[in-house]
Nucleic acid binder design. Structure first.
Lengths: 226, 226
DNA sequence: AATCAAGCATGCGTGCATGATTGTTTCTGC
DNA sequence: GCAGAAACAATCATGCACGCATGCTTGATT
């Protein structure tokens, strides 16, 4: 048959090392930040040489662009995994959902994404990739939060309430960066879930200005993951 | 009299350039991030040579340590300035306070602090200084929020509600990093100010687990500024 | 078995940021 | 007015990270 037009990656080893490099990149982002995640550091963590990384990704930017997509996959898997452990219904479920949302914003994946996020604010080369990650993760996070909470977005104010919950989770994840914030966080999660439960039941509703948003059309929500 | 033991900075020019370097450092942090804020860049923005900066701050770390303190001063001034424009009372006041808190988390000062914050998660040399900034700003932010909102922290749950508000503001500030998030933010601020107003009036209260915190003893709240 | 290409490792050159050194101007004290 | 120190400027030296170019190893094809 013809030549190697299909670029068949029959070498399983190649894909394996590629995966190792990507996972090492994400880990290094969480542990050493953006500028600290040099290709040499990533390669050292992956246990390969710099030449290997350069074979798979010509430039550093290309490497982390791929790592961003890798992170999105990991995040979706994490959330779906944790979602199975949620209680079926009742007031406990609201707490469980809020706790889960906040928890996935305090893990290593969120740290990595946060580093990328902040770095992308200045490094122009990162903005497109991180922007795509942000958009995708944000939409998914909001969609899953609405689903898990059983919220009715056709009720005015509910959408904003859910968004506020996610933004608070991001804030808590940010607060957990430097020091262990788990003690303070626990109390906030409890209180927030109470307030959220009350708000979603209809006590605190009301149209938000003249927005008049339809349930279907989503405004982009910034994404962050844990 | 004796020699220059008192280190009297009689040279006004010296203090002036020092201030210019510090302000340039903060601005560069907001615009170029941590690793992008090289001393040469800061000096270029300040309009001085690298030697001048090196005269005032021997090392880069020393420069940004001083810049951190400078930021804290600026932040306090900004908040006090904005606080004077708050309405006296009524439901509008809650909205105005929330809006103000969120606004100061979307400005250049918050961007600079955010960059420092994230950088300090990895750069060990930055942690003490940024930790102090975080502690001071966090305490002040919480104290001012309680004061402006007229919240009664002796009521169980109120403290956590205020903290959650600040964490949400931080999350909104983070969301505003890459893209202009003002439209989405406006709706969230409106909705949350409604919920917060209801929560602070006593509808959504309740002890937070077995924390049993006394009103006086503050747990450290992470700081962020705008 | 031989050959060829992909996967991978090693060494080199360039550019940049930091810190240190030296030189020049400006102010202060006697 | 002069000496001395401080403020500031300019240059040098070291280290690091990236990208490239070369060479070795492994697996696939015939």
């Amino acid at each position: 048959m013809g030549l190697v037009t299909d670029r068949a990656p029959k070498q399983d080893r190649s894909r394996a090392t590629r995966q190792r490099i990507l996972e090492a990149a994400v880990s290094c982002l969480a542990e050493h930040g953006w500028s600290g995640s040099t290709v040499a550091v990533v390669c050292a963590r992956a246990g390969v040489s710099r030449g290997a990384a350069q074979h798979h990704f010509r430039t550093r930017e290309e490497l982390f662009t791929a790592a961003i997509a890798h992170m999105a996959e990991q995040w979706l898997g994490t959330v779906r995994e944790r979602a199975r452990a949620l209680p079926d219904s009742g007031g406990d479920r609201t707490y469980a959902v809020v706790d889960m949302l906040v928890t996935v914003h305090t893990g290593p994946l969120f740290r990595a994404a946060l580093h990328l996020w902040v770095a992308a604010a200045d490094e122009e080369q990162l903005r497109p990739g991180v922007g795509a990650l942000e958009a995708r993760i944000g939409r998914e996070a909001h969609r899953l939060a609405v689903e898990f909470l059983g919220a009715d977005e056709s009720v005015p104010g509910v959408r904003e309430t859910v968004q506020a919950t996610l933004d608070m989770a991001r804030g808590l994840g940010l607060a957990n960066l430097l020091s262990d914030d788990s003690a303070r966080r626990a109390g906030i999660v409890r209180q927030w879930s109470r307030i959220l439960d009350t708000a979603l039941r209809g006590s605190v509703q009301g149209g938000v200005g003249g927005s008049g948003r339809q349930p279907g059309e989503a405004d982009p929500e910034p994404g962050a993951l844990g």
